[in-house]
Amino acid sequence: MKLNSMFILCSIIFISISCDGQNKSTPQKTKFEEIENVKKPEKITNNMRIDNLKKSMTEYMEIANPSYSKKDVEECGIILNEFLSEINKSNSKEEGLKIVKFAVEKLNNLNNKCESELIETSEREEITDIINLATSSKGYNKYEDDITEEWREW
């Protein structure tokens, strides 16, 4: 009997110690609920992509001596912004393709003027992403299809 009482007393002490510090009034969050509360990154817009592209081109100018200037970088941004404005106003795939062709040819001319140094691999990928995202959101192509390839020289 004494052993039984001792066992019960030890059990009660063990349970009270192991529960000490737990807030029993607030339910514990699951890992999934904790993950949901983490701040989600903001959506990257085409304007943000253009700004990052221009920043990358400008930063490269600081470490190298490319054949393009800040004015050329700005012109690239203007061409892309004009493209986005026009493609958003377009109402048909045919009209959209004309807008893409016009923008790509302007970029070709600008890049040629810069001895093909303005738009290199990473810039090409970013520019085609901007154009493909805009045209695919209008339903003119699938995002995976490079709508610029037909006219692009860079």
Rank of each mutant, 00 (worst) to 15 (best):
Q22S: 05
I147V: 15
E153N: 14
K54R: 04
K55H: 11
L110I: 01
E95G: 02
I79N: 05
E123M: 14
T121Y: 07
A103E: 06
E123A: 15
S67A: 13
S16Q: 03
K113E: 15
E117Q: 15
I13F: 11
S25F: 07
N81I: 06
N141F: 02
M1H: 10
I35E: 05
E120T: 13
E115R: 07
K31I: 15
C114R: 04
F14R: 03
E36W: 00
E95D: 06
W151H: 07
T148D: 07
V100E: 05
E74A: 11
N132T: 04
K98V: 02
I78G: 02
E75N: 10
S137H: 05
E74M: 02
E150A: 13
I15N: 01
L110T: 09
S69P: 04
N37S: 15
N108T: 04
E125H: 10
K113D: 11
T26K: 14
Y143H: 11
F14D: 01
L80T: 13
G77K: 06
E117I: 08
R49D: 08
E62Q: 15
Y143D: 01
I127Q: 13
E36G: 00
E33C: 11
T135P: 04
N91A: 11
A103Q: 07
K29C: 08
S92K: 02
E82V: 10
E144V: 10
I130H: 06
K89I: 02
T121A: 13
V104P: 03
T45N: 10
S90Y: 03
N23S: 12
Y68D: 10
W154D: 12
D146E: 09
Y68M: 06
S116Y: 14
P27N: 05
E94K: 13
V73M: 02
L110A: 06
I130N: 07
N108E: 06
I131N: 12
A134L: 04
E120D: 03
M6Q: 12
N65P: 00
N141D: 12
S5F: 00
E82S: 12
N132Y: 05
S25N: 09
L107A: 02
C114F: 08
F83S: 13
W151K: 02
G96D: 01
E144A: 14
N46C: 08
T45S: 15
K55Y: 05
E115K: 15
Y140S: 09
T45R: 04
N141Q: 05
D20A: 12
K55V: 02
V100T: 14
K39D: 07
S56Y: 11
I130M: 09
I8W: 04
E126L: 11
N4I: 14
E33Y: 03
I15K: 01
S5Q: 12
I17A: 11
K113F: 02
K39T: 13
F102D: 15
E75K: 13
S136P: 09
K40G: 03
Y143M: 08
T45A: 09
K29F: 05
E144Y: 11
W154R: 00
E59T: 07
I119G: 10
E33I: 13
M48A: 12
F32C: 04
E86Q: 12
L9N: 12
N109C: 00
I79T: 08
S5D: 12
K24C: 01
E149N: 09
K29H: 02
E95S: 09
K93Q: 11
I87Q: 03
N109M: 03
I35D: 03
E125M: 07
N141V: 10
S69N: 06
R124D: 05
R152F: 00
I119Y: 13
N23V: 07
T121H: 03
D146R: 10
L133A: 10
